[in-house]
Simulated assay, not measured.
Amino acid sequence: MTKLALFVRLEAKSGKENALKDFLESGLPLANAESETPVWFALRFGPTTFGIFDAFDNENGRQAHLNGKIAAALMARADELLATPPSIEKVDVLAAKLPA
């Protein structure tokens, strides 16, 4: 059962909105390659505010994701793309409807 998640809020630097959007879209193949990440979304909340929501069956999966390629790539480009450091929240999934 998918019971743990991460919610990451990202604020783009002025003029870097499209670059951050493109970066997030490019993360999908990396997320698809993570066997312990069954749920992954790249989100846009407004002109400069973006996010990532991903969910996991257990803490091992969540930690593997935090130590994985997407997180490493984001941190490598954070100074270039982000106005503030990413806000990373560990959250619990209370209920979910997922494809079978």
Rank of each mutant, 00 (worst) to 15 (best):
F7Y: 12
K3L: 15
W40F: 15
T2F: 12
L30T: 00
M75N: 13
W40S: 08
T2C: 14
D57P: 06
A33V: 03
M1F: 05
S14I: 02
N58T: 13
E59S: 12
T2W: 02
P38A: 07
P29E: 00
M1Y: 10
A96V: 15
D57E: 15
K3C: 13
E36Y: 02
A55C: 09
G68N: 00
G15V: 01
G68H: 09
L94N: 07
D57L: 04
A95G: 06
A83K: 07
G27C: 10
E59K: 14
F53E: 08
A100L: 11
V91C: 14
A76M: 12
R62I: 04
V91P: 11
H65W: 08
F23Y: 05
L98M: 13
D22A: 13
I88Q: 08
A95C: 03
D22K: 00
L74K: 02
E34M: 06
T48Q: 04
T49F: 05
L10G: 10
T2I: 15
I52Q: 02
A55K: 04
S14V: 03
P86C: 06
Q63S: 14
L82G: 07
A42M: 05
L10M: 07
K3H: 13
E25Q: 10
L98K: 10
E89L: 11
A76W: 06
